[in-house]
Design a protein around this nucleic acid. Structure first.
Lengths: 200, 200
DNA sequence: TTATTTAATCAACACCTGTTCAATAAATTA
DNA sequence: TAATTTATTGAACAGGTGTTGATTAAATAA
């Protein structure tokens, strides 16, 4: 008798890896939209049925690739942080430096995904992770003046994502330390009269 | 002789409207992904060639619909604001109240787009508009302590979008005034030690 | 190793896609 | 109004899609 074992069948891993690799290669050559399932399976040298056995559409295949990137982001937060930047910047910005270092580590992928327009799935994952981290800290820090902490978490997680988008669009012309410093400055700033000017 | 006139041909308007209406109707019934071009043109009662004359893919048709929504957002900012909330809240939050009122006005559409996962195009437009408004104000308010204003604009525009997402996911359980109040509280809060807790 | 389970393959299917073309109908211009 | 321009139509096409069922091959369990 054969029960569902813990480790996935080597054939599955092999097929998935081949298709993931094929998709990434095609993405270097042409627009995501114009890449067909047939393209992918031909380059991966697997049957089209194999694709449909594991995925419903190509976006799902991309999400599989994204999962590895976001796993790295999560891991980056667990490791203790040691670097020059930490000595120069306030201690509390360390985790945010990690974010930007993570993005820079995968700069090619981030550029590919953000520059084109298929980040829905990726953005969702990324923001969800950031939101979780922010919310965790907010709950520990305990209530501030009647602020809805879910809204606050949604606000800050998207905000950091926005910073990443700007960074990518600018072609990574700044160092991660600079980005973390800017994040701190923006947060510390009193932008009430700046975010939206009152009409006279 | 017939030159390109200012007003678009009535046939074009009619065809586009029919297809837009058909897409919205299908979106009530099934997943965006599973809606085919054939579905749309059959319900709109136009030839498939007509679709491809105006659009490349269905996402473009959706963007056409989105343009009307975002046009309303822009317009909402130009009109002078008068309401009860203005008396209760600081004057400078008025424009942000408008944002949330706009979202509530189109609550059905926002829910449809944000709950599903095809907001890439819409989000881009929305954030771009917010970013433009924020950046405009930032440039007028003049430099604050070495903050990169583009990064700041990206930060705040995505942050507000994040607030909208939270609001939609929560099923609009708050009033626009409350959302604007929360926005103000979050911005005014000193969240430096809250956004990311320093590890010990 | 052998038996069993399960993934990958191949062929075939109806349907959707994106494009082309000549024919038609509706709009605009004078 | 008549003449001209242009959108829409309908048919047809080579391809891609998503699914099926029977067969083969590889991985796992005993």
């Amino acid at each position: 008798m054969k029960l569902s074992s813990e480790t996935t069948d080597r054939r599955i891993k092999k097929s998935k890896k081949a298709m993931q690799q094929a998709l990434l290669e095609w993405m270097e050559e042409k627009d995501f939209k114009s890449i067909t399932i047939t393209n992918i399976v031909q380059r991966a040298d697997v049957n089209r049925g194999t694709f449909y056995k594991h995925y419903d559409y190509k976006e799902q295949l991309l999400e599989d690739i994204m999962d590895e990137i976001t796993a790295d982001l999560k891991e980056a937060f667990r490791k203790p942080y040691k670097s020059k930047a930490m000595l120069e910047l306030p201690e509390l910005t360390a985790p945010s430096v990690k974010i930007f270092e993570h993005v820079l580590k995968h700069d090619h992928f981030y550029t590919l995904v953000i520059a084109s327009n298929m980040l829905t799935g990726f953005q969702y994952k990324l923001v969800s992770i950031l939101r979780g981290l922010v919310l965790e800290d907010l709950l520990q820090a305990a209530g501030d003046e009647g602020i809805d902490q879910r809204l606050q978490a949604g606000y800050h997680s998207h905000a950091i994502f926005g910073l990443i988008v700007e960074w990518v669009h600018g072609g990574f012309e700044h160092k991660p330390d600079y980005m973390a410093e800017q994040l701190l400055l923006i947060i510390r700033n009193r932008p009430a009269e700046v975010v939206f000017k009152a009409e006279n």
